[in-house]
Design a protein around this nucleic acid. Structure first.
Lengths: 205, 205
DNA sequence: TATCTATTATTAACAATGTTAACAATAGAG
DNA sequence: CTCTATTGTTAACATTGTTAATAATAGATA
């Protein structure tokens, strides 16, 4: 691609092109993971030079952050949906945990990026401090736990500790699935369900 | 360092030098983590050229693998020790879980390398299939769980599922600590203890 | 209409990475 | 004394993320 080629590319509007880059980046990211992703590969896919991307995103992390935020949007919406539908708070919590796990199992690369890479969310102060869809999702989850406490269903443990425990456990299942090649989908499901059962059994009065 | 300089370095024996590289590598690794580690940095520290390292280790992963194995040696020994001392099997299991968590919290970089990086243990077929200290440690942990089952203390759940659940949960606590900057030592301890309590409460009959 | 400026693209380059190829020089075996 | 294996080295390659310098157009302004 030379300067003559660039002339034909001038028509696109900023927002549309940003969208296009994002979509291409997500495709690469989903199929090749964090390690397989590179700015040059992305540039090749959208048929632009690598530096062009820097006109639309500050750097690699900024781009990956945008991708993750879109996933959290989806996640947060679904979590809210679960909460509004269900009646029994403990059952809602169970559903929420299972959905969290399932979400991670379905989107390992994004989950990996979000939780197992400091560069994107970690380096940005702290997930909880910065306004983000990731933070929103966390807060919705916390509300679900608080509902259970308000209903007098759980042992008297600090709500934040309970949230951590449940998130951490879900976390672990997904990590196991990501990093253990031989951990099958069926196996993951069994372990996920059993783990949630054990946790809720241990948490309830 | 030129060829003349190399002459003075010829005296060292293979094994000793391998040891020396390993120690230097571990130092860098502990202080700078996986991302901060590089073959060139290591070469600079031991005052040899980068290529020399390749005479003693196949590649970067091979070197990091060796470091991790040494940590597991330590870990496995301590786990065996806990098992031989304690009488009550459930209490042994509790100690084992807490030790696992504590080990991870104390050695975040190694833990990260072992469990959150496919390149070292993951790419080597599978941790469970290959003979390694990591595998030994796993087996000791499994025996502790089996002791509890044999004593009739736990619900009737497959031993491998229980092992996974406990390992996964411990895993999660450590991951949280590694990737959340604001997750303090005190907080980690509270969550770790509460999590183990909840799990054992949920697992027992 | 002519010109100036901001935008959008490019190429070239830098520094860092893991790793390999080619080469040098010694130690020890025959 | 000579040959060979061992143990080093330098130079180079192909990546990576990112920045600097530059070109060319679109749109605003005179």
């Amino acid at each position: 691609m030379d300067f003559m080629g660039a002339i034909e590319k001038r028509a696109k509007h900023k927002k549309e092109f940003r969208r296009e880059i994002l979509d291409a980046a997500r495709d690469i990211f989903i199929s090749d993971g964090y390690d397989g992703f590179s700015m040059r590969k992305l540039a090749g896919k959208i048929d632009y030079s690598p530096t062009t991307i820097y006109l639309y995103f500050k750097n690699k992390d900024d781009l990956l952050f945008a991708i993750c935020e879109e996933f959290f949007e989806q996640f947060s919406a679904q979590l809210n949906n679960i909460r509004s539908v269900s009646q029994d708070p403990v059952e809602t919590l169970r559903q929420g945990c299972l959905y969290l796990m399932n979400f991670g199992l379905q989107n390992p690369n994004q989950y990996k990026l979000i939780f197992f890479t400091k560069s994107v969310y970690g380096s940005r102060e702290e997930l909880v401090e910065k306004e983000s869809m990731a933070r929103n999702t966390y807060l919705v989850f916390k509300e679900i736990v608080q509902d259970c406490i308000n209903a007098g269903k759980l042992q008297e443990i600090d709500v934040d500790v309970i949230v951590d425990i449940l998130a951490i456990a879900s976390h672990g299942v997904i990590a196991k699935n990501i990093y253990c090649v031989k951990f099958s989908k069926e196996r993951s499901d069994i372990v996920a369900h059993t783990l949630v059962d054990v946790l809720l059994r241990g948490l309830q009065k």
